[in-house]
Amino acid sequence: MKYLKLIRFQNLLLLAFMQLIFRYGFLKLQNIETALAHWQYALLVLSTVLIAAGGYVINDIFDQDTDEENKPEKVIVGKSVSETTAYYIYAGVTLVGVSIGFYLSNLIMRPGFASIFIMISALLYFYATNLKQMLLIGNLAVAFLLSFSVLIVGVFDIFPATADDNRRTMTLMFSILKDYAIFAFVINFIREIVKDMQDIQGDTSQGMSTLPITIGVKWTTKIVAVLLVISTVVLLIYVNAHLMVNELYYATIYALVLVVAPLLFCLVKVWNATSKADFSQLSKILKWIIFFGILSVLIVTLNINHNA
Rank of each mutant, 00 (worst) to 15 (best):
R191S: 08
V194A: 09
K28W: 13
K269W: 12
K5R: 12
H306Y: 15
E73T: 14
T220K: 08
L29G: 03
S121D: 01
L263V: 07
V194C: 05
I76E: 07
I120W: 04
I108N: 06
A53T: 01
V257L: 15
Q281C: 13
D278E: 08
I108K: 07
S149A: 12
L140F: 15
N240A: 15
K287W: 03
T221L: 07
W219S: 13
F26K: 02
V259P: 04
W271V: 14
L172T: 14
S231F: 12
A225W: 08
L264N: 04
V259Y: 01
V57C: 01
L177W: 01
S99F: 15
I51C: 01
T221P: 02
L211R: 03
M119V: 03
M173S: 09
D63R: 06
G54F: 02
T221V: 13
I182N: 10
Y56R: 09
F144Q: 06
L4Y: 12
W271F: 14
S283E: 07
L264H: 03
V297T: 13
Y238M: 12
D165Y: 12
Q201E: 15
A161Q: 07
L135H: 10
D165C: 06
S231H: 12
A241D: 15
S80G: 10
A114Q: 01
Y180W: 10
L124D: 01
K287N: 07
Q198G: 07
F144C: 09
T214S: 11
T301E: 10
Q19P: 01
D203I: 05
H306I: 11
V234S: 11
Y238P: 11
V260I: 14
